[in-house]
Amino acid sequence: MSLSVKTFNLGVLATNCYLIFNKEEAIVIDPGGEPTEIIKFLEKNNLTLTLILNTHLHFDHIQGNAKLSKLTGAPIFASQKDAYLLESELGLGGFMDFPSTELFEFKDLRPGEVEVLNTKCKVLATPGHSPGSLSFYFPELKAVFVGDLIFFRSVGRTDFPGGDLEILKKSVEESIFTLPSDTIIYPGHGEPTVVKEEKIHNPFFIGYNYLS
């Protein structure tokens, strides 16, 4: 059963929220704002939302979690290593005129292979932007959803509490750059890119052996 991807730009920081779906079911990654557009799309296409995944728990990736889960019944999954963020402004929002995050419960998601939408998904531990950052690799889509780990010619911020640039770079090199070279990278902000292109052109990885 083939999969499709639809991108919604949600919230005050225009976070990329990804809806992955087949003919009957859907999952969502990082609903970072008001989820009305998502609900309309699900209803229009007769889709059942079965899962809400978070790459990490910074406020701009989670502010649609509570409402979307209440409206659809879909459970929320994230890494427990990021739970501390929900006790700070980084998760709760509310600072610098940013909206506040409605509280929600989530289930711990650990690295490994899971089955969603009748296909395989590899949950990858990719810390650096936050301690619990996860990436989701779908071999069928030839795509990986990375949150704020890596962007087109850049990487995620590491100056927040819990961030670490060297750990982030190691995550990219060991978990993303080892994927097939034609794998599409879907980031938390901005346009998609491709593994091979970032190996060669991303300035944070000058000297990386991209031929390996």
Rank of each mutant, 00 (worst) to 15 (best):
K122Y: 08
I150A: 12
L211D: 13
E113K: 05
I38V: 13
F177S: 14
G32C: 00
K70S: 14
K170W: 07
K70C: 01
L90F: 15
P187I: 08
T126S: 00
T183L: 02
T48L: 14
F95D: 10
Q80M: 10
E43N: 14
V155S: 06
G64S: 15
E174M: 15
D182H: 09
A125D: 15
P187F: 01
G91S: 03
P161K: 00
D148E: 08
T15D: 03
V116M: 05
T193G: 01
T15G: 13
K70I: 03
E25K: 15
E140R: 05
R110S: 01
P35H: 05
T15R: 08
D82K: 12
I150N: 04
G163P: 11
Y210V: 01
T158M: 11
P75E: 02
P192S: 08
S212A: 10
I167P: 09
V28D: 04
P131T: 09
S154P: 02
E43P: 09
L53Y: 04
V12G: 09
I184G: 13
D182M: 04
I185K: 01
N46S: 06
F151A: 02
I206D: 07
Y186G: 03
S212G: 11
E89K: 09
S175Q: 13
P192F: 12
I167N: 03
A125Y: 15
F152Y: 08
H129W: 12
E43Q: 05
G162R: 08
V194Y: 02
F77G: 00
L13D: 12
L103D: 13
E25D: 12
K23T: 11
D164P: 02
Y186P: 00
L168C: 05
F77T: 12
H61K: 12
K169Y: 14
P131L: 07
Y84K: 11
G64Y: 10
S175I: 05
D159L: 14
T193W: 06
A143L: 06
F59D: 00
G128M: 00
S100Y: 01
E105M: 07
K196H: 10
L92S: 02
L168I: 11
I206H: 08
T36L: 10
D30C: 04
F136W: 10
F160D: 07
Y208L: 11
D108A: 09
L165D: 07
E173S: 12
A14N: 11
L47W: 10
H58V: 10
Y208P: 14
D60K: 00
H189G: 04
P31Q: 13
E37W: 04
K23N: 05
N45K: 05
A78I: 04
E191K: 14
D30T: 08
I206T: 09
L3Q: 06
G207N: 01
V172H: 15
V155F: 07
S135A: 15
P75I: 00
P187S: 12
P127S: 07
L103V: 14
N202S: 06
C17A: 15
N45F: 01
N202M: 02
K81M: 09
K67F: 01
G207T: 08
H56M: 01
